[in-house]
Nucleic acid binder design. Structure first.
Lengths: 208, 208
DNA sequence: GGACAAATACAAAGTACTGGGTATTTGGCA
DNA sequence: TGCCAAATACCCAGTACTTTGTATTTGTCC
């Protein structure tokens, strides 16, 4: 059973999320609070696995609540729910040790999925992935800036990292194997990779 | 110039380390302190790149000093100097955000090398690597337990991760390329890797 | 001295990747 | 409408890896 707590001052939104979460048979929504202080009081007494924490709240905002959770070493994982996809806000939260960062207009299925990932300690925290929650274009633009890779090249690099052969990638993307080979050549050239190890290391370093 | 500070209450040891560091033309030892408080005072006033921090000190021990450095967000990288190679001590420090963890009886060349790596932000923090600083057997045993790999297999996996071909690995280890191929076969079977990409990813994820 | 794992080495056949190109089509933008 | 990047596709020759084995030697341990 995944024991969840929600802290968000937008009542309608919070109830909406809580109702969504209650539909999962293995989720237990222990409480919905509209400020950080109440949420903290709950966490001090109850065993909870995950708190979904809005950033903007009265009495004690999300960041302050997060810091308090961390400084008291409360054994709860923190998922930030945020309106903002700005990198500096993300990085502030990341620095404080969050487990995940979810945009408020992300897909409900994605929310559920990320909660499970966090519970199982296999969620990968990365800004690009946050961007991708609602804006695939922003996701790809982020890599474009970093590596000068096109959208297709990024897709292919991810599959290379996952251990797929050129034939498998061609099948999966409905392309010719020759196309995949040319993309790989171009990716190698852009990244300056001399071999597969270089490609995979770069992909992992970027949390692709 | 790498600006260094040393905090260690064993005077002779500290002077020994400081003298070693002063031999490097690009190292500047700004101060040697025998307790955490003095070191902190220094760091508040001076720009330093790296502090070498002993764990056991009077007035303020290493962990407390480390936490203070982090909570005040002092812009200095922390290298722990420790007598202990126990994993829980390592993990406590890792959690607080250290850049490196060096055993006190590690090789002097290794100390110098790690300082440079830290300064250039390319040191990889991992418990296995700490073990290897003085006890290669412990290093290999650690992977043996995790992956059931023999010493030679680990060596070869590391070189695969570095992008070397079978021929290059054979040359480097003074082996026949056939031997390397057989070892690879065995590594693949033990790890459950389907291909080179899988091998590289596992090696990277384990900080090999 | 025997058992056993590790290490070493060999080899054929097949699959996969790389490096060197070339070429055409498509989509976006000024 | 033209330009340009992205995307697609093709191809040859070469290198590298994988799969399927087999075999011997060495070192450690009981």
């Amino acid at each position: 059973m995944i024991r969840l707590v929600l802290a968000d001052d937008h009542t309608l939104f919070a109830e909406g999320v809580a109702n969504l979460l209650r539909k999962e048979s293995d989720f237990e929504v222990q409480g919905v609070f509209n400020n950080g202080l109440s949420a903290l009081r709950h966490l001090e007494k109850m065993q909870s696995d995950i708190i979904l924490l809005d950033l903007n709240m009265p009495d004690m905002d999300g960041i302050a609540t997060l810091k308090e959770i961390k400084s008291r070493r409360l054994p709860v994982k923190v998922i930030i729910l945020s309106m903002y996809d700005e990198e500096n806000i993300f990085k502030s939260c990341e620095k404080e040790g969050i487990s995940a960062y979810i945009l408020k207009d992300a897909d409900p299925d994605e929310l559920i999925y990320i909660i499970r990932e966090v519970f199982e300690d296999r969620h990968l925290l990365s800004y690009q992935r946050v961007l991708k929650q609602v804006d695939e274009d922003a996701f790809y633009d982020s890599y474009k800036k970093k590596l000068k890779l096109s959208r297709r090249e990024i897709e292919i690099l991810k599959l290379i990292k996952d251990g797929k052969t050129n034939n498998e990638i061609a099948e999966e993307l409905f392309l010719s194997v020759f196309t995949v080979e040319t993309h790989r050549k171009n990716i190698n050239a852009k990244i300056g990779a001399k071999n597969l190890a270089d490609l995979i290391r770069v992909a992992l370093e970027l949390n692709l």
